[in-house]
Computed example of a mutant assay.
Amino acid sequence: MTASPQRDPAQSPKYSDIVAAAQALFGEIGYEKTGIREIADRAHISLGTIYAYFPDGKSGVLSAALNERVERLVDYVAQTDKTEPLDMFLDRVRRLNTEIVRDSFLRRLFTDQERVTEPRLRERGIEIVKTFSDLAVGELESLTAQGLADCRDPEAIEMLLRVANAGWISAHHAGAPIVEHERLLDALLDSVAALIRIPPTARSRRVRP
């Protein structure tokens, strides 16, 4: 008699309910105030069920919640409808920053890492932010190398985009008077585009043999 293949726990509805509950609570009240019992209550399951799926408890649940949400974020950011390489980059930046502002779980991931005391989770959050930053820098370098942009300092541009978004989130959280986030992004991306976009006439001179 052959043993039936074990089902991937991540495909279980209960697993998904636990992850969704953790994402919601972490976004609403933060890592420190989120406990296993609160996650169980939000997911409408028992504590025993949570530990059956996540033997290491709270840190394991939130690590899974983080990974699942970032996977969806990557898929969303990649779904640009632009066709020009530079416009595709700028649209991906817009989609990333808009989603970070919209989703409270992502806001905490990208802006509140210092408040997470669990070393493994904090390091994972820092790693994810660095990955997105490195991707942006790499894309700007690639566009410049192909003659599709003229970005003299990709790291500075990436930091400008990241810090501006984080600053808006902090100001919003503090109740400071601010413009709508969409207006900020419009101004920011228009400025970056004007700074690094190569005029068509200059581009044609660059590619001329």
Rank of each mutant, 00 (worst) to 15 (best):
K33V: 07
E32V: 09
I45A: 01
T34A: 05
G30W: 02
R94Y: 00
Y76N: 08
L96Y: 11
L47W: 10
I36V: 15
H44S: 15
R72T: 13
D81M: 09
A40Y: 05
L73G: 01
D41S: 15
R92E: 15
D91Q: 00
P55I: 03
G60R: 01
F89G: 05
V61Q: 03
Y53H: 10
E38Q: 14
D87C: 02
E99N: 12
F89D: 04
G35K: 05
P55Q: 02
V61R: 02
A43F: 01
V77E: 02
A65E: 01
G30M: 02
L66A: 04
A78T: 05
R37H: 14
L86V: 04
L73K: 01
F89K: 02
K33D: 13
A65Q: 00
I36P: 10
E99Y: 12
T49Y: 04
E84H: 05
Y76D: 10
D87S: 04
A65K: 00
K33F: 11
A78Y: 07
G48R: 06
K33Y: 09
V74G: 08
R69N: 06
E99D: 14
D91V: 00
P55S: 03
E99I: 11
S59V: 15
D41L: 15
L62R: 03
G30R: 01
V93R: 05
S46H: 13
Y31K: 07
V70I: 12
V74T: 05
L66Y: 04
A65S: 05
G60V: 04
N67V: 13
T98M: 12
Q79A: 07
E68D: 07
A40R: 04
D91W: 00
T49S: 12
M88N: 08
D91F: 00
A64P: 08
I36E: 14
V74N: 10
T80V: 08
S46K: 13
V74H: 09
T49Q: 06
R69L: 08
E68L: 07
E84G: 06
E71P: 05
V77P: 01
Y53Q: 09
S63L: 15
Y51I: 04
T83P: 09
V93E: 11
T98P: 08
Y53L: 10
F89M: 05
K33P: 06
G57Q: 03
A43D: 01
R37L: 14
M88T: 10
T34N: 03
Y53D: 12
G48A: 14
Q79L: 03
L86K: 02
I39S: 01
L96G: 08
L96A: 10
A64V: 15
A52K: 10
E32L: 10
R94G: 00
V74K: 08
Y31A: 12
S59H: 09
